[in-house]
């Protein structure tokens, strides 16, 4: 039977080495967009080595997510996506789970990012009229330190769960 989804959430917080400068050295970094990407404080990144595919890929609907964050009204937020138009590929898994691209962002815009992701997911849930699940991975950069927040679970638990963890992210 297609069971009603049981309310679940899982959040993992880890120390990681990922930084903006490391991304600028990636083979997929699009040099024709170097100037604008280096200004960004929120970057959408592809998955590498997914399903044995040799090129980096973005999860399905990344293009619409990218359009959504570009139109999101905020003075502090400077979003971009780290790939050329030519190399932009979407991996379609046809699963009923929303997967967002990897997000790399400056600590300053973390609260804004949580708000915009929440709004995006809520819109999706309203459109589908179903309880949806989501997978989000955000890497937060604070100076020379980085932490990753990996959330998997119900859309309507995302904001509360991630907010709680983000408050003292770099003090622990």
């Amino acid at each position: 039977m297609l069971h009603e989804s049981h309310k679940t959430k899982e959040l993992k917080v880890n120390d990681v080495n990922l930084s903006f400068s490391e991304i600028y050295r990636k083979p997929y970094f699009p040099h024709e967009h170097e100037e604008s990407i280096k200004k960004a404080n929120l970057l959408l990144l592809p998955f590498e080595g997914m399903r044995g595919f040799e090129k980096p890929v973005f999860p399905e609907e990344t293009m619409s997510f990218y359009n959504y964050i570009r139109e999101y009204e905020n003075n502090e937020l400077i979003p971009d996506i780290c790939i050329s138009d030519q190399d932009y590929h979407e991996l379609e898994l046809h699963a009923d789970l929303i997967t967002l691209p990897l997000l790399l962002l400056d600590k300053v815009v973390l609260p804004i990012a949580i708000g915009l992701i929440t709004h995006y997911l809520t819109q999706k849930q309203v459109a589908r009229k179903r309880d949806l699940k989501v997978k989000v991975n955000v890497t937060v950069v604070d100076g020379d330190k980085s932490k990753s927040l990996s959330y998997e679970g119900d859309v309507d638990q995302f904001e509360e769960t991630v907010k709680a963890a983000s408050d003292n992210l770099f003090n622990s």
Partner: peptide, 8 residues
């Protein structure tokens, strides 16, 4: 079944 593919 779920069909997995890459769209370019």
């Amino acid at each position: 079944f779920s069909r997995e593919s890459v769209v370019k």
